[in-house]
């Protein structure tokens, strides 16, 4: 039996899709059987980030409506044997899928895959409710901006209301230099408000844009710092204890981080 993890944020454009693609690829490189589910119906792009757009025949709505078998809609990744994608529908409405259908779908996927990772749409309406319906765990993505953190807080409250407790937190697009100047929220500031466990900090990285455009997740590039952060997150998801990246190349920062996440070392 696998694990169903939803990647969510409230705010759009903070990196849910990037995170889903990278973590999924990371877990697949470690030998796990992974399926990524795009629930952003009408605004799908997980397929593009993975470079699989040209392979789509059936989508998630076709599966829930019984137009095809689940097996037919799953797209195999071009690089990794264990990685699969269940694409969102581009032309249909968000209400085309119900939370009950999502629950049934997740239960079915869980039987065949080690990890079912759900890319959640922005917002808190139907699309969000669908995405979390079948999830057992949640990862909340935020950027170091007040508005994104506010939305993340809201989402954590809604997750709790849906009995998805203790979500993990990813802080994306952190710029240590800006934090140092006091121009960006620090990791401490964010944890102070959200009070959830940090599972990773991903630095701002130009390579993300390059990799997105190429349809090759950054995690595959050994030189990408964001990719390195995502590799660590993937390992932490499997239960491994991985020390946090030293984003600032400066003494003292690591110890601070360890204090925040409670890593004793």
């Amino acid at each position: 039996m696998g694990e169903v993890i939803v990647i969510t944020s409230g705010k759009g454009g903070v990196g849910k899709t990037t995170t889903t693609a990278n973590i999924g690829t990371g877990l697949a490189t470690m030998g796990y059987k992974v399926v990524l589910v795009d629930t952003d119906i009408g605004l799908r792009n997980l397929d593009v980030v993975l470079g699989l757009e040209n392979r789509i025949v059936y989508d998630i709505v076709d599966v829930t409506k019984g137009n095809c078998k689940l097996r037919q809609a799953l797209i195999k990744d071009k690089r990794f044997e264990g990685l699969h994608l269940l694409p969102a529908a581009q032309t249909k409405d968000k209400t085309a899928v119900s939370p009950e259908e999502m629950k049934a779908l997740c239960a079915e996927l869980k039987r065949d895959f080690d990890y079912v990772i759900i890319d959640c749409p922005a917002g808190i309406e139907q699309g969000f409710k669908n995405a979390i319906a079948g999830a057992e765990k949640a990862i909340v993505v935020t950027t170091p901006e007040v508005s994104a953190v506010r939305d993340a807080d809201r989402i954590i409250g809604l997750l709790e209301a849906a009995e998805l407790y203790q979500p993990k937190l990813i802080i994306n697009r952190l710029r240590p230099k800006m934090v140092k100047r006091g121009d960006m929220m620090s990791i401490e500031d964010i944890i102070d408000i959200l009070a959830v466990e940090l599972i990773g900090v991903v630095p701002e990285d130009e390579y993300i844009v390059v990799s997105t455009n190429r349809g090759e997740p950054a995690i595959l590039d050994p030189n990408s710092r964001a990719g390195q952060a995502y590799r660590n997150i993937a390992r932490r998801i499997t239960g491994e204890e991985v020390p946090f990246l030293n984003l600032e190349e400066e003494e003292g920062f690591m110890s601070k981080l360890k204090k925040i996440i409670g890593l004793s070392r």
Partner: peptide, 24 residues
């Protein structure tokens, strides 16, 4: 508990909260 963004409590009496009341 902590009250997060979008959550609200309304009570005709005193309210003691062990936790935070977050923005929103």
């Amino acid at each position: 508990r902590t009250l997060r963004c979008g959550q609200s409590i309304s009570y005709d009496g005193n309210v003691v909260i062990i936790g935070d009341v977050n923005p929103g």
